[in-house]
Design a protein around this nucleic acid. Sequence first.
DNA 1: TTTATCATGTAAGTCGTTACATGATTGA
DNA 2: TCAATCATGTAACGACTTACATGATAAA
Lengths: 188, 188
Amino acid sequence: MILQYAILGFLLRSSLTGYQLGKIFSKSLNLVWVASLSQIYRELRALEKHGLVISRQEKQIDRPDKVVYTITEAGETAFRDWLKNYPEELFTEKRDEFMLRVFFGSSMGKDELINHYKHFIEERLEMKKALEAAREETDLLVKKSKSDKDQMTNLDNLSTEFLYRRASMSIETTLHWAEQCLVELEQL
Amino acid sequence: MILQYAILGFLLRSSLTGYQLGKIFSKSLNLVWVASLSQIYRELRALEKHGLVISRQEKQIDRPDKVVYTITEAGETAFRDWLKNYPEELFTEKRDEFMLRVFFGSSMGKDELINHYKHFIEERLEMKKALEAAREETDLLVKKSKSDKDQMTNLDNLSTEFLYRRASMSIETTLHWAEQCLVELEQL
DNA sequence: TTTATCATGTAAGTCGTTACATGATTGA
DNA sequence: TCAATCATGTAACGACTTACATGATAAA
């Protein structure tokens, strides 16, 4: 289960509660791998059953007690093994409702199809803005926490940059595609 | 359930068995929406329970009997309703193992990460070839079945063309991205 | 001779979402 | 005062995959 490795990857950096993991997922990994809280809680229990993480209860006065999970040596080994070996088959989901609608486009009228493309383009433009905002935010964080010399010299920041770049390029391409489709449809 | 609408969309063109639907899915819709046979059989039964399709048994001597499904008027209405309304939220899955690995790239060594990118690029190149082959095949089919005048003048062929174009542009962008990442990694 | 195709399905299990439950604190 | 956040989970359901089962024919 890939989600388990993602959790281990975060726990390798620091011990965390399920709730904190949920936050981290939605903030840093939302473009790449979505995970709901209840999923995270379940996988944490599964990981503990297999001895890849251990938990300890922490009492709190003002808030409910929390369960902090720490990666074990076995967990670190499992994570590193997974990470270093390129898999025979990469997990990539491909279920795209918009493309399905385009596929059945001839069952729509031309105007309906055009309407679909316009909506789609609007959405991508908003996604583009949201992505740029998120990117600037992480840039600020990096600048705050690192000296100028360190910037972009380590794998961590470079990988984050690559990730944003891919998301951005992907949206840009999709926009070009949709706009071109729209032009050709309207010429019809 | 979106899969049900996809099934209805095919049944609108002609009556089919579950097995035939499975073939059609893997041949024409594999880029867009994957569906396993057992899923298709189940959804066909669900559709029949709701009166959107009807089945009839057909006896065969040489082969096992088959169950042919036909769309009903209610089914056609349901499909057209779904198709004409752009949804508040498009279903798009985003769980990408490679990006997850890139995200945790700093937990790998630089060489391992480079190795990952090289594998990834290899795979995309193969996907590109496979896509071009599939495209030529459908082009041939279209030329066989249609006169020159009809070509690219109807929504059906145009939508198919759009679909391939998107897949092709997407692979191309991914390739550029990965190659650029590789260059920057190796400069490090 | 073995593999692929035709044709149907069941069963078990995994993965994922949504709803429910509790209850204090903090900010608008 | 209301919503949001912190913090933990359970329960139920829905979607999807994989393995199993059967058994004929035709092509490599």
